[in-house]
């Protein structure tokens, strides 16, 4: 069972879906790692025990701090979400796909061999994926990571390309190597659940936008509600405030209509907001 309340990290890394200007203000406010740790500690003081975060390079510093203060973070869990897409997207523009893999995969994955004067490269995609996962997971060593997520850009890309087998490989690698539960972030929840089920992945953890105004709920609110009511999976709701378009009370009250929702992911920068949202989630989520 996951915690009902999951604390997110968008606010720390200048991700704001409603305002580019606010996102820059956040970048200024959270310039130092200590300012991130301060807000995390405030979240912990309100009783939050899980931090769901991207594998942003600055998270490595936060993990280092946690390892050096074991008493303070005893029992605290991190749900990593990989990869931090912009790191790779900018690298692909700059270095190309092979250049990017070379830059981020440790060792020489393209162990080139020559056959009849032509250079071939080994293209073992599943090994590349596993090595990339290991590289991203390095920063979390010694920290409890019971659920490990694939980020939405990658999930939705694989989904759109119908390369569903990749999900199954990811799923089994995370279970085997990390003894953790695989999770999926998506902007296309109904289609993803169908795809996972078709690969024999049952009752998956799926984190998707769920909000009263249907923001970033691809295909529309109706089919999301149908899946939340009728299908078997472990939903996490994100973007519950629809990037700020909804007031917290009405936003969380809406989530309360779906008893299957296991957890709510949210981010906030002040103790007051954290406390208010957490209390609302505990009040309305009845599972």
């Amino acid at each position: 069972m996951m915690d009902k309340v999951l604390f997110g990290d968008n606010q720390f890394f200048a991700v704001n879906h409603l305002s580019d200007e606010k996102s820059r203000e956040q970048a200024i406010r959270f310039k130092d790692d200590s300012s991130i740790i301060r807000v995390l500690d405030q979240a912990i003081e309100t009783g939050i025990n899980t931090f769901m975060c991207t594998t942003h390079e600055r998270i490595a510093n936060i993990c280092e701090y946690m390892r050096s203060h074991p008493d303070k973070y005893r029992g605290f869990k991190i749900f990593p979400c990989m990869p931090y897409a912009h790191k790779y997207a900018n690298a692909v523009t700059d270095l190309g796909i092979i250049g990017t893999i070379k830059q981020y995969v440790p060792g020489n994955i393209f162990s080139a061999f020559t056959k009849g004067g032509v250079a071939y490269i080994r293209k073992d995609f599943i090994s590349i994926m596993e090595l990339l996962i290991d590289a991203e997971m390095k920063m979390f060593r010694g920290i409890s990571t019971p659920v490990i997520f694939l980020q939405n850009v990658l999930v939705d890309m694989i989904l759109g390309l119908k390369m569903y087998e990749v999900f199954r490989e990811y799923d089994s690698y995370i279970r085997l190597k990390y003894n953790a539960e695989p999770g999926y972030i998506t902007m296309n929840m109904p289609a993803l659940l169908d795809a996972l089920n078709s690969e024999g992945i049952e009752n998956p953890i799926i984190c998707s936008s769920i909000n009263k105004i249907g923001f970033r709920m691809s295909g529309g609110k109706a089919i999301y509600e149908e899946y939340l009511n009728e299908k078997k999976f472990r939903p996490i709701a994100m973007q519950v405030l629809a990037a700020g378009a909804l007031r917290p009370a009405e936003a969380i009250e809406y989530l309360g209509r779906f008893p299957n929702i296991e957890s709510v992911l949210f981010g906030a920068s002040t103790k007051g907001h954290i406390k208010e949202t957490k209390e609302l989630i505990e009040k309305y989520l009845c599972n």
């Binding site: 409603l18 890309m157 902007m187 296309n188 923001f215 691809s218 295909g219 990037a243 378009a245």
Partner: peptide
């Protein structure tokens, strides 16, 4: 005014409604 009021609904989302 925010994008939440103007975003074009899409049946599949990848990196932004505009691409779909």
């Amino acid at each position: 005014r925010y994008i939440t009021d103007y975003a074009i609904p899409v049946s599949f989302y990848l990196r932004g409604e505009e691409y779909s």
